[in-house]
Simulated assay, not measured.
Amino acid sequence: MILLLTFLWPGLAGAVALGLGAGRLSGLPRGAVAPAILTVAVAVLWGAALSGVVPGRAGLWVESAALMLPAYLAGCLAGALVGRISRRKPEPAAVGG
């Protein structure tokens, strides 16, 4: 995995940047179904990557996806939180005394 990380860091940076943009535009999910499905998908990918059940080029794709999907999801979460913070209306300043 460390070797993949050294070769795939541009893809990871792109996944985080894409996630930041997507999260900023879409915001946080309203229900708990989508995050649960994505958590299961990450767990399945990590399980397949760590067990080595997929050999060869397809295994490289699975391991790459196992690294990039969590990076993308972290970017989505960060972008959604930045979007939520930036959309807040500032509280009016106290006047008088």
Rank of each mutant, 00 (worst) to 15 (best):
Y72S: 07
S51K: 15
Y72T: 08
G75D: 04
P55T: 11
G83S: 04
V62F: 11
A66W: 07
L69D: 00
S86I: 12
A49S: 01
L69S: 02
G75F: 04
L60D: 10
L67V: 05
K89W: 02
A49M: 00
R57V: 05
S64H: 08
L60C: 02
V53Y: 10
A78K: 00
Y72F: 14
L50H: 08
G83R: 02
G83M: 03
A80S: 11
G47M: 02
L73C: 04
V62E: 07
P70N: 06
G47H: 07
L81W: 14
G83E: 03
G79R: 11
C76R: 11
L60M: 05
A48D: 12
I85S: 12
V54T: 09
G75T: 04
G75N: 07
W46S: 09
G75R: 02
Y72P: 10
A74R: 15
A74C: 15
W61T: 04
Y72V: 03
L69P: 01
L77T: 14
S64C: 13
P92V: 08
S51P: 15
A93Q: 05
G79F: 00
V54C: 11
E91T: 05
W61N: 07
G83W: 00
V53L: 08
V53W: 02
G56S: 07
I85T: 13
S86Y: 10
W61F: 11
A48Y: 14
L69N: 03
G59E: 03
